Computed example of a mutant assay.
Amino acid sequence: MTKAATTFETRLKTTASDVETLLSSLLSDAPLVGEIARPAQLMAAMRHGSLNGGKRLRPFLVVESTLLLGGSAEAALRVGTALECLHCYSLIHDDLPAMDDDDLRRGQPTVHRAFDEATAILAGDSLLTYAFDIIAAPETKLDAAAKMELVLALARAAGPGGMAGGQALDLAAEKQAPDELGVMTLQAMKTGALLRFACEAGAIIAQSSVEDREGLQAFGRTIGLAFQLADDLLDVTSDAATLGKAAGKDAGRGKGTLVALHGVDWAEARLEALTAEAVDLLAPYGKKALILQETARFIAGREN
Rank of each mutant, 00 (worst) to 15 (best):
A153Y: 02
G263L: 08
L26A: 12
I291D: 05
H48S: 04
A37H: 12
D179I: 12
A137R: 04
L42M: 09
K141N: 14
L12E: 00
V111H: 04
I92W: 08
G263H: 10
E35V: 13
K55T: 04
L169V: 10
A155Q: 07
D143T: 00
R156M: 11
A260F: 02
G159F: 05
D95N: 07
L181D: 15
S25I: 09
T185N: 12
A120V: 13
A241Y: 03
E200I: 00
R302Y: 02
A5F: 01
A155C: 13
S72E: 08
D265W: 10
K141W: 00
T275C: 14
E84G: 10
E9F: 12
L290I: 07
I299A: 06
T119P: 00
D170Y: 12
L234G: 12
E84W: 05
I92L: 09
I205Y: 05
A246E: 11
L243R: 01
D250I: 07
R56M: 04
G252Y: 07
V264Q: 15
G71P: 05
L83T: 13
A16Q: 08
R11C: 04
R270I: 04
L68F: 13
I204V: 06
I291K: 04
E117W: 08
Q228L: 10
R106K: 12
K190C: 10
D125H: 09
R106C: 06
A246W: 02
L274K: 01
R270W: 01
T6A: 15
L77R: 11
A136H: 05
D235W: 02
A40S: 13
R221A: 05
A30G: 06
E272P: 00
L194R: 02
G70Y: 02
A300V: 07
A193S: 15
L195N: 03
I134S: 03
L216Q: 02
G161A: 14
R11K: 11
A157N: 10
L290Q: 12
A73K: 10
V111F: 07
T119K: 03
G301T: 02
L68W: 07
G263M: 10
M99R: 06
L261T: 02
A73V: 06
A241R: 02
T110A: 15
A98K: 06
